[in-house]
């Protein structure tokens, strides 16, 4: 079922949390709302869910206007950052809740709950209470609980935000697999660009209550509609006054046509990559991201001179520097503009 939001507005007191946000989530796809904390993306999600009432604008699910419907009548599944478990119920009863209050036949409930617990890999944990489950298990339980009522859309508010890095990564991959299996239209709120790019079919970048860009991860990464999207979605540095991705830069000992000379000031080795910070002779700072052993092969150290060339770099010179540029023509329009 598709979701459309149109010109959503929301104020909390004097704070203008959401300002004229419109986008569409095609049926069966997974959309990430990505942006810095406090940027209004959770508020957008809660307005889709009916947990917040927009001051203006429309929310449509499967073409029908649900703006005035209470949350319970929207046919949604919602997962909270802190899982919101029903602490006095076992995992089994948590998952069964939505079905029980619909007075479904007992046998049907039992079959469905068992099936869902298997889907989220909690079969052996049915009789545990939430306090006896780990964070990751609780979130999977919450997901099964949301899926039990066969929601038209699944809404996830920072679902992995409270988990440690390792579990986050596992659950991310698992969520993508789950989405392939269940294929319910999903909106995921996250402030983690890596998470958004890995999991989502499309990303909506939201900042300070406004929509910056909507597009596939590749579109947003390679053809950012604004300086903000460019810098938020991945590493970025300036060279010769234009933005480039540091992994697009080449570092050489000898000068090359168009290269800029400079001096190494800092080397950060992260195992799979090395970050080399340089002070260029024109006075600008920049940094180069080198994969694997590429840097070792250069035999360079702090204080050595080297040359940076951007001939293979993506050209971001057309990206508007005013950070509030709206992707009003849609993702492709924005993407075409920077070509």
């Amino acid at each position: 079922m598709s979701i459309e939001v149109e010109s959503l507005e929301k104020r909390f007191g004097s704070a203008h949390a959401v300002q004229g946000v419109s986008f569409e989530v095609p049926a069966g796809s997974l959309m990430a709302l990505l942006g810095p904390s406090g940027g209004g993306k959770s508020t957008v999600l809660r307005m889709i869910a009916g947990l917040e009432i927009p001051d203006a604008g429309t929310v449509r699910i499967d073409g029908g206007d649900v703006t005035k419907l209470p949350a319970r009548a929207r046919g949604i599944g919602f997962c909270f950052q802190h899982y919101a478990p029903f602490r006095h119920m076992t995992a089994w009863d948590n998952v069964a809740f939505g079905l029980k209050i619909r007075h479904r036949p007992k046998a049907e409930i039992a079959a469905r709950v068992d099936e869902l617990l298997e889907l989220v890999r909690l079969t052996g944990f049915a009789s545990r209470y939430p306090s006896q489950l780990s964070g990751g298990q609780r979130q999977r339980m919450a997901l099964a609980r949301a899926l039990a009522v066969e929601p038209r859309v699944l809404l996830l508010d920072e679902p992995f935000g409270a988990l440690d890095a390792q579990v986050r990564k596992e659950l991310r991959t698992w969520l993508r697999e789950l989405h392939e299996k269940v294929a319910v239209t999903t909106v995921l709120v996250t402030h983690d660009q890596e998470e958004a790019m890995e999991v989502a079919d499309r990303i909506a970048v939201i900042r300070e209550g406004r929509l910056e860009q909507v597009g596939t991860p590749a579109e947003c990464y390679n053809h950012p509609a604004s300086e903000f999207v460019l810098t938020f979605l991945g590493p970025a540095t300036r060279i010769g006054g234009t933005w480039v991705r540091p992994h697009d830069l080449a570092l050489t000992r000898e000068a090359r046509p168009g290269s800029r000379p400079g001096k190494l000031v800092r080397i950060v080795r992260l195992g799979f990559e090395t970050r080399v910070e340089l002070l260029l002779d024109d006075g600008a700072d920049t940094w180069v991201q080198l994969a694997g052993r590429a840097f070792d092969d250069l035999h360079l150290d702090i204080g050595d001179r080297a040359h940076v060339s951007a001939d293979r770099a993506r050209d971001f010179s057309a990206v508007p520097t005013a950070s509030h540029a709206l992707a009003s023509e849609g993702p492709n329009g924005a993407a075409e503009a920077s070509r």
Binding site: A49, G50, L51, P70, A71, R72, A73, R74, I76, G77, F78, F80, A84, F86, F97, G98, I101, R102, A142, R145, A146, A148, V149
Partner: peptide, 8 residues
Amino acid sequence: RAAETLGA
């Protein structure tokens, strides 16, 4: 709120 979204 979670219970509400589940139809309660």
